[in-house]
């Protein structure tokens, strides 16, 4: 059953009275089980949204509902049980001296019994493929491994949504790929919602829906295919489309029919093949 898990209703936020509005009257819904990508130029309000979802910030105007509860000072502790966040810099989120201790931290805070704690640590490390590193020091791992441990720590508290706030930005291409694969597997297995805030254009192609932010407002809500068919508009607001979409765009501008906006190499090749076989 598709249900609304996060709802923003006419939300406005600013960091102080003398500051401009970082978010201006924004409304949107995110369903449980959905993969949402949030993109936008630097300063468009993306990260502010993430911090509002789990009550790290509270809005001056409007209402945010998470898991049926309005986000406010009374509910944030309950809400944080169902919202897990992974931030950009993996080094800033470790507290334990071993991978195991680090994953245990969130569980200890919640007073989980030892037996169950051990089970959850093992399960969550297994889910991200880090079981072999259980006694390693977190800060000696590679960037991709660190982010996987950060995800395991979050999985252990069994959230209903995971928010990735530019969680792959500091990783190399292989690390990015690993994390997105891990996240995808975890999402499908545990039926989580995923909110990925990102600048990585190729990461967006995997999302069910994209929310495009500009100047603190929701500029567009659509699927990746539709988003990438709007090259000029996106470029005007400081964004861009992936190389494949650009090539498809240029091909179509010189009369090669591209019917379905391709999201990857395979889809573009199919379009090229169709054109080729008709000639």
């Amino acid at each position: 059953m598709k249900k609304v898990f996060i709802a923003f209703r006419n939300v406005s936020f600013r960091y102080g009275e003398e500051y401009p509005w970082a978010l201006k009257n924004i409304s949107f819904e995110i369903f449980s089980d959905e993969w949402i990508a949030i993109i936008g130029h630097n300063g468009s309000g993306k990260s502010t949204i993430a911090k509002l979802i789990n009550g790290l910030l509270l809005p001056q105007e409007g209402e945010i509902i998470v898991d049926g509860m309005p986000v406010n000072e009374e509910t944030i502790w309950d809400i944080r049980k169902s919202v897990g966040m992974v931030f950009q810099n993996p080094d800033n989120q470790f507290v334990g001296t071993t991978v195991r201790d680090d994953v245990a931290f969130g569980l200890e805070n919640r007073g989980i019994a030892r037996e169950e704690m051990i089970q959850r640590i093992n399960d969550s490390l297994d889910a991200v493929g880090m079981t072999d590193y259980i006694l390693h020091e977190p800060h000696r791992l590679s960037g991709g491994q660190k982010q996987r441990v950060a995800i395991a720590s979050i999985l252990a508290i069994s959230p209903e949504v995971i928010i990735l706030d530019e969680a792959t930005a500091m990783l190399d291409p292989k690390g990015r790929h690993e994390i997105m694969n891990t996240v995808n597997e975890v999402k499908n297995k545990h039926h989580l919602a995923l909110v990925a805030i990102t600048h990585d254009l190729n990461e967006i192609t995997q999302a069910d829906r994209v929310i495009v932010m500009s100047e603190g407002e929701v500029w567009l809500e659509s699927n990746p295919r539709d988003v990438f068919s709007r090259k000029e508009e996106l470029q005007q607001i400081g964004l861009d489309i992936p190389f494949i979409a650009k090539l498809a765009d240029d091909l179509s501008s010189i009369g090669v029919p591209i019917k379905n906006q391709p999201l990857n190499h395979e889809e573009l090749l199919i379009e090229l093949w169709k054109y080729h076989s008709k000639m």
Binding site: F243, K246, D250, L251, S253, I254, G255, V256, Y275, H276
Partner: peptide, 17 residues
């Protein structure tokens, strides 16, 4: 450029037949 590449692709694909 992507545009020039698109032109080369078009020519090559069209000539293929």
């Amino acid at each position: 450029s992507t545009y020039d590449l698109a032109c080369e692709l078009k020519a090559a694909l069209g000539g293929g037949s």
